[in-house]
């Protein structure tokens, strides 16, 4: 059962990622990226990271992708066509590069890792995460709050500039 769930959602995420990469209209790319993030949220849940699965759905598929959707609809990228001969040339050059990168990563990651899995799923519980976040990682957490504030102010200042 666990294997079936993993391979099904892994296949869904890879197919959705392929659609994101090779789509011709950006709006379909946004929608299939949401599907990809949803499938990955299932994998996170399967790995016991319940809190992060919820955050993946709420923050990624919910907030960030809605932002993408708004900007895509606002700017209407379908109104322009990109010259196709240049696209073919870049694709021919980029495919071997990406294949090499994939082989390199697979080679690096596919060695036999020690499996220390002890069966219980304590690590993804929200109490555990909160304890680590507010005890061991308190300073990085506070610094990210400053980062988010700077990002909000920066985005508003950039877009509101009226000239």
């Amino acid at each position: 059962m666990e294997h079936v769930v993993f391979y099904f959602f892994a296949g869904v995420s890879v197919i959705a990622a392929l659609t994101v990469v090779f789509q011709s209209t950006a709006i379909y790319g946004v929608l299939s990226l949401i599907v990809c993030f949803g499938a990955m949220a299932v994998l996170f849940f399967q790995l016991g990271a319940h809190f992060l699965a919820a955050i993946q759905v709420i923050v990624y598929a919910g907030a960030i992708m809605v932002l993408f959707l708004f900007v895509t609809m606002l700017l209407d990228p379908e109104s322009e066509r990109f010259p196709s001969n240049r696209l073919v040339k870049t694709t021919i050059l980029a495919l071997p590069v990406a294949a090499f990168l994939a082989l390199l990563l697979l080679q690096a990651l596919a060695e036999s890792w020690p499996t220390l899995d002890v069966g219980q799923e304590q690590t993804g519980r929200i109490e555990t995460i909160a304890a680590y976040l507010f005890r061991d990682y308190l300073l990085p957490f506070e610094i990210t709050s400053i980062l988010v504030l700077a990002a909000i102010v920066g985005a508003v200042v950039l877009v509101k500039r009226s000239d």
């Binding site: 994101v20 950006a26 994998l43």
Partner: peptide
């Protein structure tokens, strides 16, 4: 899981290389 992660990462890199649409 790591192989899936590597495949998705390479697909993302491929997309950055071949797409000319800045949103994509």
């Amino acid at each position: 899981y790591l192989m899936l992660s590597a495949i998705l990462f390479a697909l993302g890199a491929l997309g950055v290389l071949i797409n000319r649409n800045i949103i994509s």
